[in-house]
């Protein structure tokens, strides 16, 4: 559990982060969203003390971050940034091994961990181990960057716009990867982005920052349905709110028994996908399948009901 209490950062007379208090539950993904200059990156960088807070404190599992030396603290916290920040003069393997090396892990343990991580990110160790970052595509560099952050099995991972430099298709894949890896490893992740879509897609909880202040902290559904301020509503986008809400709900949740006409969609697809299928083919219901076989259907009416505003 990460407790942030009254955290403030001043640059001269400017408050970059203004008295932020929040608690991040262990094993969740918390996404900090805001426009540029909202203080979201500064907030994240104060967690591993890349920035020293002007006042307030951060406690990780009850221990204040101020009680350890900054570089020792950072070795226990994974850190991935936009533009990957790989060391251009080190091979992929040596980049991933950076933190285990700092922690003086035995050599064979490091080598095994590197291969394990490359496989986790669907990169063949034999093929990629000894390459240099400049030889990789943008998506591969980014995956190595995240692999490096995960290398020492940190309980907490900080990610600063990790997918910011990727094109939309590769970014979607990277987001899926992150979700999958999170489910598998169960570590706590704090991620900064300016992209509300990314936040809704990834987050268990979203923190919205504006002008240094934490203006709302809640689940994606809460943020969409009950934006605390006009700024949050703007971030979510009025027009897209119902669609964003639908994208949070899996089809299986409102599925009913019985057959329906036409092509089926997967049970873990979102209601947004189901709505899209209905509208595109002019149907009022679509069949739902799991493992190749039909298991039920969802109706357009049921979808509509979910998208409706319920105060």
């Amino acid at each position: 559990m990460i407790e942030i209490k009254g955290l403030t950062k001043m640059y001269g007379d400017v408050k970059a982060v203004d008295d932020v208090t929040m608690t991040v539950e262990t094993g969740t993904i918390t996404v900090i969203v805001g426009t540029s200059g909202s203080g979201k990156t500064t907030l994240l960088r104060m967690v591993n003390r890349l920035e020293e807070p002007t006042s307030g404190e951060v406690r990780i599992n009850g221990t204040s971050t101020l009680s350890v030396q900054p570089h020792i603290l950072r070795r226990r916290i994974g850190y991935a940034i936009q533009g990957h920040g790989l060391f251009p003069h080190h091979t992929v393997a040596r980049n991933i091994a950076a933190v285990p090396n700092l922690l003086n892990w035995p050599r064979d343990k490091i080598a095994a961990r590197v291969d394990e991580l490359l496989e986790l990110f669907s990169m063949d160790p034999v093929q990629f181990r000894d390459r240099y970052p400049a030889d990789l595509s943008g998506g591969q560099q980014q995956r190595v960057g995240v692999a490096r952050a995960l290398a020492s099995r940190p309980d907490l991972m900080l990610m600063d716009e990790p997918f910011g430099a990727l094109d939309p298709i590769i970014r979607a894949r990277a987001q899926d990867d992150l979700r999958r890896i999170h489910t598998k490893l169960g570590s706590t992740i704090m991620l900064v982005t300016h992209d509300m879509d990314e936040a809704i897609r990834l987050a268990d909880k979203i923190a919205v920052m504006d002008a240094g202040r934490l203006v709302q902290y809640g689940t994606p559904a809460e943020i969409i349905t009950h934006p605390a301020t006009d700024f949050v509503a703007d971030m979510v986008g009025d027009v897209e709110r119902p669609l964003r809400l639908l994208s949070l709900i899996p089809v299986s949740q409102i599925m009913v028994d019985g057959p329906a006409e036409g092509a089926a969609i997967a049970a873990d697809a979102s209601l947004r996908d189901a709505l899209s299928a209905c509208l595109w083919t002019g149907r009022t219901a679509v069949p739902v399948e799991r493992g190749g076989g039909p298991i039920g259907h969802v109706t357009l009416d049921a979808i509509r009901a979910c998208a409706e505003f319920q105060p």
């Binding site: 570089h71 226990r76 933190v99 490096r148």
Partner: peptide, 18 residues
Amino acid sequence: LPPAAMEAARGIGMSRWQ
């Protein structure tokens, strides 16, 4: 020096000397 690599060096917990 590439700023991202420098930032990463600090972020993953290298001391100044490292």
